[in-house]
Amino acid sequence: MATQKKTKKPVSHALFWTLIKETPGYKDAYKDVIKEGLVNQYSGGKTCSLSEMYRKYPAEYSNMLEAMKGSTEQRQARYEESRDKAAKRVIAAICAWLDKVGYTFETRSDKIRYVLSMACRAANCSNFNAIPESKLMAIYNLYCNKNSVNIDNPATDYVISKN
């Protein structure tokens, strides 16, 4: 019986690269130098390799990422900004779908109120502002897919049988 060799997927350091771009004085041309400096600093001079630090010194790696995230206020501002953008995208996608389907409203505020209630139902949540960003992205993708479907000649309108 032959044994299968398991190949490990390389670790993605996406969070590290996202956070490093937010460091003061970051320039794309010097990203490797900045990376080596940070890794060397937080590993205590043990290594300059990000992958090696991840494998051999996981505690130092975690401490480095936490330090790069910034203070509580900076983290909160970053979260609020991305969540706000996701919420606006959801509202726009649902509004586009309502326009496509042909719904009409007396005022713009009525339409927005209806859109917010639809998003809340989709997220199974009673407050739009309490919907987490991950759910907002899922709702956005759902309505983008609905908007991309052509409703002019739906396949369900064809007569299958005369009986």
Rank of each mutant, 00 (worst) to 15 (best):
S82W: 03
R83M: 12
R83L: 11
K85T: 05
K85P: 00
K85H: 06
A86L: 10
A86Q: 08
A86P: 02
A87S: 10
A87R: 14
K88Y: 09
K88N: 14
K88L: 11
K88E: 15
R89F: 08
R89S: 12
R89W: 05
V90K: 00
I91D: 00
A92S: 08
A93F: 03
I94R: 02
I94Q: 06
C95Q: 12
C95K: 10
C95P: 01
C95A: 15
A96S: 13
A96F: 06
A96G: 10
A96R: 14
W97F: 12
L98I: 03
D99K: 09
D99V: 06
K100G: 10
K100C: 09
K100D: 03
V101K: 12
G102N: 14
G102C: 08
G102P: 04
G102F: 15
Y103D: 05
Y103W: 05
Y103V: 01
Y103N: 08
T104H: 11
T104P: 02
T104F: 09
F105Q: 11
F105G: 06
F105L: 08
T107D: 10
T107G: 04
T107I: 06
R108T: 07
R108H: 08
R108F: 15
R108S: 15
S109I: 11
S109D: 14
S109Y: 11
S109N: 11
S109F: 15
D110S: 13
D110E: 13
K111S: 14
I112R: 01
I112Q: 02
R113Q: 09
R113S: 14
Y114M: 13
Y114V: 00
V115E: 01
S117F: 04
S117I: 07
S117C: 07
S117P: 04
M118P: 00
M118E: 06
M118K: 10
M118Q: 03
M118C: 08
A119V: 03
R121W: 08
R121P: 04
R121N: 15
A122Q: 10
A122M: 07
A122L: 05
A123H: 10
A123P: 01
A123D: 03
A123M: 05
N124D: 12
C125D: 01
S126G: 13
S126F: 10
S126W: 09
S126Y: 02
N127Q: 12
N127R: 11
N127I: 14
N127L: 13
N127S: 12
N127A: 06
F128M: 10
F128Q: 06
N129P: 01
N129L: 15
N129A: 14
A130T: 07
A130K: 11
A130N: 11
A130W: 13
I131S: 01
I131N: 02
I131H: 03
I131K: 01
I131Q: 02
P132G: 08
E133V: 07
E133K: 07
E133T: 12
S134I: 15
S134N: 14
